[in-house]
């Protein structure tokens, strides 16, 4: 609960800081919005020729975009440092968070905002409002799903970033892990062969931040929601455990690879 207060404080601070450069803020948000919209052109063209692919139509894919972009946007807007965890660890900048009495993980994550994330969030919300069928009754479900998606992205980011505790320079690997999850999430999971599908429900949980919540929103089934909740809780618990485990191995700025 105390961490929630801290996250809220930082959110306000981050926005205040961003407002110091209002032009750049607006440009980033709307640039990202436009950027995301253009990605949909491809799907529109494709589904014009092939209206139904393995059970997915244009509305289905747009719904995937709506939940994935909202969840991703939300998490990087609030936890702007999520994609920089490995960097913060490897460079020794974690010292700062450890010297203060707040929870270092939440503190580290929330001390920055990703401006373009606000654009992704806006894009996701707009898609939900304009395209996703079902009307306003689905709003509570949508909000819940977006929060779950955001938390799964968060768990992936923390797990990937924590690699730096063991590997030192893990920035590229962590970024790749996180980005792969994001990239895969924007395609219906049913397009992929079995082996890959297993991967998309586990190590790169793209299905759980894309297809599964989209399906839950389109055709509600308790199993889908249950799967999401259980996975989110498990992934977050694992991510926290790994991060605090790694903290014991933290070497501050002393991680040196000597060439010999």
């Amino acid at each position: 609960m105390k961490s929630l207060g801290l996250i809220w404080r930082y959110l306000r601070h981050n926005l205040m800081s961003a407002m110091a450069y209002r032009g750049a803020f607006v440009l980033q948000v709307f640039g990202m919005l436009l950027n995301d919209l253009m990605l949909l052109v491809f799907w529109t063209l494709l589904f014009q020729r092939f209206p139904l692919l393995n059970g997915w139509d244009l509305t289905g894919v747009v719904t995937i975009y709506a939940v994935s972009a909202s969840g991703f946007g939300l998490v990087v807007a609030v936890f702007g440092n999520l994609t920089r965890v490995a960097h913060v660890i490897a460079s020794g900048d974690l010292d700062y968070y450890l010297a203060l009495p707040a929870n270092p993980l939440w503190h580290l994550l929330s001390s920055r905002t990703n401006l373009s994330g606000w654009g992704d969030l806006l894009f996701g919300v707009l898609l939900y409002v304009i395209v996703v069928p079902g009307g306003w009754q689905t709003l509570p479900l949508y909000v819940l799903l977006v929060i779950l998606v955001a938390l799964i992205f968060c768990a992936v980011g923390v797990l990937a970033g924590s690699l730096a505790f063991w590997l030192g320079q893990a920035q590229d690997l962590a970024a790749q892990w996180f980005n792969a999850t994001l990239s895969f999430s924007l395609y219906p999971v049913d397009f992929f062969p079995g082996v890959v599908r297993v991967l998309l429900y586990t190590l790169l949980p793209a299905a759980l931040v894309g297809s599964v919540p989209a399906r839950a929103l389109l055709q509600f089934r308790w199993q889908n929601l249950g799967l999401m909740v259980v996975f989110t809780l498990g992934a977050m618990a694992l991510a926290q455990w790994v991060f605090f485990r790694g903290l014991r191995r933290y070497e501050s700025g002393n991680m040196i690879v000597t060439r010999g």
Binding site: G5, L6, R9, H13, M16, A20, L100, P101, H107
Partner: peptide, 19 residues
């Protein structure tokens, strides 16, 4: 201190962190 904000904002934030 936060680079783009006046010190008083950072002070407020720290006051919150230290409860």
């Amino acid at each position: 201190l936060w680079y783009h904000l006046p010190p008083v904002d950072s002070f407020d934030l720290l006051a919150h962190i230290y409860a």
